[in-house]
Design a protein around this nucleic acid. Sequence first.
DNA 1: TAGAATCGCCAC
DNA 2: AAACGTGGCGATTCTA
Length: 580
Amino acid sequence: MELITTPDELRAAIAELAAETFIGFDTETTGLDPHRSQLRLLQFASRNQSYILDLFHFPPDALQPVLDLLAASQPIKVAHNAKFDAEFLRKHHGIRLGMVFDTYLASLLISAGNESDRHGLEPVAARYLNVEMDKSFQVSDWSGQLTESQLEYAARDAQILLPLREKLQEKLDELELMQVAKLEFDCVNAMAGMELAGIYLDADCWRAQVAQTKAAYDQAAAKLQKELSAGAPQMSLFEEATSSINLDSPTQIREALGRLGIKVESTSEWRLHNLAREHPVIALLLDYRGLSKSLSAYGLSLLDHINPVTGRIHASFRQIGSPTGRMGCTSPSLHQIPHEKHYRQCFRAPAGRKLVVADFSQIEMRILAEMSNDEALLAAFNSGEDLHRATAANMLNVPLEEVTTEQRSKAKGLNYGIIYGMGAEGLANRISVSTTEAEGLIQRYFAAYPGVARWLQNAADTAVRERRSRTMLGRLWAFSFDPTDRQQLGALKRVGKNAPIQGTGSDLFKRAVKAVDDRLQGQDAQIVHCIHDEIVVECDEVIAEKIARLVSSTMIKAGKEFLPRIPVEVDAKVTDAWLK
DNA sequence: TAGAATCGCCAC
DNA sequence: AAACGTGGCGATTCTA
C-alpha cells in the first residue's frame, strides 16, 4: 500500500494505473450524504499495487490527473456500488465517473432474485472469494487524523475488487448475463445524477394539502366513531370518552361491524367494497381509511426528507430494486405518491424552470406483442387505433366504430390483467362481472390473440420446467417457488408469464434512462425522477420545449431497439408541476 | 419491549 | 374465503 502525498508520487501512480484494463476504485467519506459530507480518501488498486490519496492533505490544484483518470472510459473502474462514489465525485469535483464494472450490481444479477443473498462487499467477497473482510472500519471516523489500520482497511477494499471482478465476470459469462450487466453498469451515472439532483417539493403547498386532508380526516373519524359505537353496549360519558374504537385496528373494526349485524371475514377493501352501497357505515369506513392512509403515508413526515443544504428531496434509488430489474425508491418512496393533483402539484419546478414529464405509452403491452409475435396484436398497434377499442373489436368480431364504452372498458381490463397472468376470478373481480362471464371474455381474448395465448402458455410451462425466466436482454430470475405446492405452482405460472414482460420493460427503460442522461449532458437539464416507465426532467424554462422533444425522441429510439416491429409512443409534457 | 409478521393500500 | 405481477410504508398485532 502506498500513501500518495506529493504531485510527483501521484503522477507515477497514475502512469501505472492508466496502463491497466481494470483498476479497483473505492472512496471513504465523512458521511453518507454527498451534500453534507466530504470526500476523504480515494483508493486505487492495480494488479500489484494499491494507492491511497488523502484529499485532506493534498493540494487541490494538483488533482487534475486523478480526476482525468476517473472520468476516462479506460481503465474501467471496478467499484462496489459505484453510484455512491460517483455522487461524491460529481458533487465535489464536477466529474462523471467513466466506464465502470459494479461488483454490487453484478452480484445482484448473479443472485437472480434470491432474496437470502446479501450484497454488501463483505458478504459478496465471502461468497465468491472465500475471503473474510472486517468492515468495522466502514463506520469509523474518517474526518480526523487517520490511523494506520484505517488506511490499511481503505486499501484492502480497493484491492479485493480486482480478484472479485474476475470471479464475478466468470459467473456473468456462465449465466449469460453480460449483456444485462453492461446495461446496468452504463446506467450508474444517470442514477447518481438523479439522486444528487433530487426533486423540488414546495413545502408550503404540501403543508396546505396536509391541513386540508387533516380537516376531512377529523370529520370522517368522528362520524365513523359515532356510527360504529351505535351497536356498543350503553356506556357512561366517561367510558365513551376513553374506550372508543381504534379505527385503524382491523380487529376492532370487525367486532364493531359485527355488533351492528354486519358479519365480515376480513375488513380488506376488496371485500368491503361491494357492501358499501348496502351499509352506509362501510362507505364511511372506506372514506376514513383513504384519509387515514393519506395522512400517515403522505403527511407532514414527507417534509422531513427535504435536505437542509439543497432544499430538495433526494430519495434513495436502488437501481435493481426487484428481480424483474425494476428500480426501487425509498426514503421517501416517491414511487407511491398518489396521482391526485393535490399531491403531485407540490412536486414542482423552481422559479425559472420547468419539468418535462415523459412516459412510455402502454409499453408492457407492446412488449407482449413483440415477444409473442401475435399477428392481431401487432396489427392492432400498427393500425394506430386505440388498443383497448381494437381489442374489443377483435374479441367481438365487430367493426371498430361499433365498440361501446363498456366493451372497451372490459377489453382494457383484460389487456392489463393478462400481463399479470390473471385468471377468470381475478378478472371478474376487477371489472365487476360474473366469473362465468369473465371466463367467456378470456376465451374470446385468446381467440382474438392466439399468439398471445400460446406465448403465455409457453412462458408458464417454461417457468414450471426450468424454474427460471429471462428477459429480452437475458436478465435472469431463478424462482424459489415450490412447484409441488398447489398455491405456489399457481404463483410460479403467473410470475412466469409476467416476469419476462415486466423485466424486459426494465431493460428497455434503463436503456432509455442512460440515453436520456447522456443526451442532457452540457444542457441545463437533469433527470430528477424515474418511475418504471416515466422519466421526469427538470430544466431551464427557456429550453423546455426543446428538451421535451429531445427526451421524447431519445426514449423512442431506445424503445425501438427492443420493439423493432411496433411503434413506440412517448407522451412528453412540459409542466410547472409533476402532472400529466 | 423490541423486532418480526401481518394488514391494508399507494405506485407502475 | 382472493390469488393478476413488482415494490414500499405506516399502524397494529404477534412473539420471544
